[in-house]
């Protein structure tokens, strides 16, 4: 019995979830449309005065990215929980953390990556300078996976609970604040010309990404075992 290698298993789970996401393409776009809509609401609320919008842009985009990924996290485990496939995954002879990491990566590719790709377009809406847009996109690229991973812990903890979606955000948002701070801080630093501060913000984001990559799958697997009991 040739057990799949860790890498093959990871790819299997990621491909499985992406295949499922593609079969229900609407879900992919709801997250994206939600993100664009939330971002576009702000100029309507705040007024179109360019100087103010440029200053607010990183905060608005990052908070919208945070909310958009919270929105789709509820389905990370619940779809598999309902039809019993999650049980089978927990019985797989490989470590559950790898499977959970795979699901987190797939969730990021469906709900995090599109936000990163579309961020420059929205950056124009806020008249961001090109370097600022670059740093914003890079920050989102480093930060959104962390949102999916920390959110994965929340999704596992609130599995099968009524009011899961709101409860999930309530648990996870405080934990995502550092990511929000470093992500927006980098853009703020570049537009204020403080290049070293920008680099250190991005470095901290990258550090949080590595930290989450190592820890969150295991914690999320423990949370799943607790929830499935």
């Amino acid at each position: 019995m040739n057990t799949l290698s860790v890498w093959q298993l990871l790819v299997l789970v990621v491909r499985r979830d992406l295949l499922l996401a593609m079969r229900r393409r609407a879900d992919v776009f709801t997250t994206l449309i939600f993100f664009v809509m939330v971002v576009s609401l702000f100029p309507l609320g705040v007024g179109s005065e360019m100087e103010l919008l440029r200053k607010m842009a990183p905060g608005v985009l990052w908070v919208a990215a945070l909310l958009a990924s919270m929105l789709s996290l509820g389905r990370l485990f619940s779809a598999d929980y309902v039809d019993g496939t999650l049980e089978q995954m927990m019985l797989a002879p490989q470590s559950l953390s790898i499977l959970v990491l795979g699901k987190m990566i797939a969730h990021w590719m469906v709900s995090g990556l599109p936000l990163v790709l579309i961020a420059p377009v929205l950056g124009i809406q806020f008249d961001l300078s090109v370097p600022a847009q670059g740093v914003l996109v890079l920050g989102l690229l480093l930060g959104t996976p962390v949102l999916s991973m920390i959110g994965g812990i929340g999704a596992a903890l609130t599995l099968g609970l009524r009011g899961g979606g709101v409860l999930l955000s309530l648990l996870v948002l405080p934990l995502c604040i550092p990511v929000l701070i470093f992500g927006t801080g980098a853009v703020y630093a570049i537009s204020a010309g403080l290049n070293e501060a920008m680099v250190s913000n991005l470095a901290l984001l990258a550090a949080m990404l590595m930290f989450s990559l190592v820890l969150t799958p295991w914690v999320s697997a423990q949370a799943l075992r607790i929830s499935m009991e």
């Binding site: 019995m1 040739n2 057990t3 799949l4 093959q8 298993l9 299997l12 499985r16 295949l19 499922l20 079969r23 229900r24 039809d83 019993g84 496939t85 049980e87 089978q88 995954m89 019985l91 797989a92 002879p93 490989q94 499977l99």
Partner: peptide, 29 residues
């Protein structure tokens, strides 16, 4: 091997896809 009340298959996927995934999870290519 556990077979519970749930079918543990994904409705959007075909029989072949479902089987290959559960085989992969059980460690069989």
């Amino acid at each position: 091997l556990y077979l519970g009340h749930h079918n543990a298959i994904k409705d959007e996927l075909s029989g072949v896809e479902n089987l290959r995934i559960s085989a992969g999870l059980a460690g069989i290519a």
